[in-house]
Amino acid sequence: MTETDRGPWIVGETSDETSSKQTGRERVRAALRHRILSGDLSPNDRIDLDAVAEEFGTSRTPVREACLALAQEGLVRVAQRSGITVIGVSPETIVENFALMAALSGVASQWAAGRITHQQLLRVRELHREIRVAAASGDDIATLNWLFHREINKSCGSTRLQGMLGDAGRMIPQRYFELFPERVPCSLDEHDALIGALARGDGAEARRITEQHFAGASQMLSTYIAQATRNGTPLK
């Protein structure tokens, strides 16, 4: 899984499954989106089409197409004379995106409680055990956590909902647990409760737990971004 694809909330195929299918435009779009959301590209920074094209070994056309797509996401501004300028993302936007993710993920968990197969539930339990082991040893858990949520979201049985989750997840800064390691114990307890609700087929409880899971994440991340913005610190 690549750095730009790795994160706790995005739903879909792993990058190993999609890397061979990605076009140059998609690769550039994903990389620039990550740099903007992480703060590596700040508001009012200019994007040099030639420099990006050289970096990715492509022509200017897919880079420009990627920037036009990012403009539709509200992350850059494309003007004929001034070129491409980064707009960035505000703490308010992060809160909005988490609210969307909470609502969509809550519905996905509710549907999954009634549709998850025995094999899928076993996979969710296995991933949760791996997360606990990794957290206890101080290893990276972001990818495992990403897979845990992805498995539950896939179990909802709705490709449309999965697509909506993927679109919302791409607008959330990645590597969340590297920023907030203190959030891990609470998240693991919530995972335990969520697995129990899925096993019982309790959709209402699965939805409540999932929304609560995101509520805590939203508050911590929005506070961090607000502080980083005031201090001029990139969100890594």
Rank of each mutant, 00 (worst) to 15 (best):
V133G: 00
A53G: 14
E13K: 11
Y224L: 12
M1H: 13
I84H: 02
E151V: 05
G232A: 06
R81V: 14
I87C: 02
R6E: 15
R81P: 00
R183K: 07
H128K: 08
I225L: 15
I47T: 03
V184M: 10
G216S: 10
G201R: 07
L49H: 12
R200W: 08
G163P: 05
V11P: 01
D140F: 03
Q212L: 13
L165M: 11
R183N: 14
Q119C: 01
G106T: 10
F148C: 04
I141K: 00
E182A: 12
R183M: 15
D45W: 01
F214W: 09
L41A: 05
E73P: 00
H213D: 11
R6D: 15
R208H: 12
A79I: 05
S155Y: 06
S222Y: 03
G106I: 08
G169A: 07
T14R: 08
E54I: 06
I152G: 02
N44Q: 11
Q72H: 11
V184N: 02
D45A: 06
V86G: 00
S158P: 09
G74S: 08
H34V: 03
Q80L: 14
A53H: 09
G114D: 10
W9H: 10
A30D: 15
I116M: 14
D16V: 04
A53S: 12
G83M: 07
I131N: 01
L41G: 02
T18K: 05
I87P: 00
K236N: 14
